[in-house]
Amino acid sequence: MSQERSATLKGNPITLVGPVLAAGNTAPDFVLNKNLLEVASLQDFSGKVKLISVVPSIDTGVCDAQTRRFNEVASQLGDQVAVLTVSADLPFAQARWCGAAGVDRVVMLSDYKDNSFAKAYGVLIKELSLDMRSIFVVDANDKITYVEVLSEMTEHPNYDAAIAAVKELL
C-alpha cells in the first residue's frame, strides 16, 4: 500500500508517495536507464557502497550543485563506492548536462519511464511525476545505512552527513 506525506516546493504543498525507508531497511531493487537502450539495476553495483543522490531535474541550480559536489567527492572515495544520481530527466538531457558540466565520475540514471525508483524509494512527487531531492547510502550488502529526504525541494541536502555515512562503511 502506498503511503502519502507532505513536503513543499518553494513553500507550496506537494505530496510524496511511497514507503518511508529508513536505515536498516533492505534497499529496493531498481531498473533505471543509463541511456535510451541500456539499463542498470541495484545488482549492477553489488559489493560496492552506493551513494544514491536523487534530484528532481539536473537542469536546476540546486540539482546541478548537488551532482557536481558528489562528482568531486566520488574521486576521493575510490572504487569501492558507486556514486549514482537519479532523476526523471531523459537520458539525453542527463548526457548533455554531464558533457557541459564535465561530470564524469557519477553514474547518471533516469527514472523517466515509470517513476519506479521514486515509487519504490518513497520519493515520488505526486503532482509533478518527479523524484524528490534525497540521499540514500546503501552498504555493500544492499542495506540502507543513511536516508535524507528533504521536506523542501529547493533546499540542499546535508552533504557532509551523507559523505560521512559513506566513509563509515569503508
Rank of each mutant, 00 (worst) to 15 (best):
V149E: 04
A82K: 03
G78N: 13
A82V: 05
G102T: 03
S57L: 12
L90W: 05
V73H: 02
K50M: 09
Q66P: 13
V107Q: 14
N33M: 06
L84N: 12
K167M: 14
I135D: 01
E4Q: 13
T154C: 09
H156G: 09
N158I: 01
A88D: 13
L51T: 08
V137S: 07
S53G: 01
G18H: 12
Q94I: 08
T26R: 08
S151N: 14
Y159C: 02
N35E: 13
V83P: 09
V54P: 15
S110C: 12
A40N: 03
F45I: 03
N115L: 15
Y121S: 07
L150M: 10
K113Q: 12
K167G: 02
D89T: 11
D44R: 03
V107R: 15
P13E: 00
G102V: 07
L36Q: 11
M1D: 13
H156D: 13
C98H: 08
K48P: 01
S116Q: 14
L42S: 11
T15C: 04
V62E: 12
M108G: 09
P91I: 13
V31L: 11
E152T: 11
G11Y: 04
N12L: 10
G78A: 04
A7C: 07
L9G: 04
R105E: 14
T26M: 14
L90H: 13
S6E: 04
D131A: 08
L9D: 09
A100S: 02
P19H: 13
M132C: 05
S41K: 03
N12D: 10
F136K: 03
G61P: 15
W97K: 00
V54T: 09
I125D: 15
N35F: 14
R69L: 08
P157N: 09
N158K: 05
A23G: 04
L170W: 00
C63Q: 12
D79W: 01
I144H: 01
I58H: 03
I163F: 10
V107Y: 13
P157H: 07
K167F: 05
L109I: 15
A65P: 01
L150V: 10
A162L: 01
A22H: 08
L42R: 11
V49T: 14
E155I: 05
P19Q: 14
D131V: 15
S57I: 11
L169M: 00
V147S: 02
R96Y: 00
